[in-house]
Design a protein around this nucleic acid. Sequence first.
DNA 1: TCACTATATGACTATCTGCTCATATATTAG
DNA 2: CTAATATATGAGCAGATAGTCATATAGTGA
Lengths: 117, 117
Amino acid sequence: MEHDVCGSRIIHPHKIAAARENALPATEIADLSQIFKALADPSRLRLLYALTREEMCVCDLSALLEISESAVSHQLRLLRNLQIVANRREGTVLYYRLKDHHVSELIALALEHLREG
Amino acid sequence: MEHDVCGSRIIHPHKIAAARENALPATEIADLSQIFKALADPSRLRLLYALTREEMCVCDLSALLEISESAVSHQLRLLRNLQIVANRREGTVLYYRLKDHHVSELIALALEHLREG
DNA sequence: TCACTATATGACTATCTGCTCATATATTAG
DNA sequence: CTAATATATGAGCAGATAGTCATATAGTGA
């Protein structure tokens, strides 16, 4: 039985070497996990799915999801920081929208897979 | 200003009504968030990405990720419970593989989006 | 049978996360 | 200016989660 630098057992060194060659750089792994993390919460998913139809303001989203405006605002800040949503001000009202189609395509694809079993 | 049953303020009742019509059922939201949750952790992403190439055993995955075999095993159990991976026994060694293409397609799509900016 | 290997699992813990509550900020109206 | 509206934000808390450690299980070979 071989061992790597860290002392782990290795049964198939060639597989590990090949996987290391093919592996994604740490930065891409981190970015990917952040995107998926954004989609990994029911409230955020419902928010984002609603925004695929049309822009909405915080208090409408709050009424729709039946959670506090503060909770919505916190989630929107997270999504803003990830460049997933953007907003537009009209008086005191802020209208949020999806910044691009990436997220809605991911949701659509996952949904498709769910539905086909 | 209108208010819904729960006392939330509503600025655009028609938007909320339309969003409610269009909304995904709670079960689909739950299923979606579970899929994305599975992809929302760097270790699991690296695991799954490695398995897109070929099946691997627990101790190889442990060596590849440089985390304990126990940690790998815990993550694999989670992915097994979500029907994302399956295994095949050969003696004492368990070889894990992706159960279908859904997850790798989601990763590929997200990666594509990341790379195009 | 027994020893060994590869993996699984339960308990525990430190960190993370989604929300609430109180407060702050920004815009409008008067 | 003040008051009101819509949203943002920080602190703090309860629940979730990824890992560690010790132990259990399943298959192999003697």
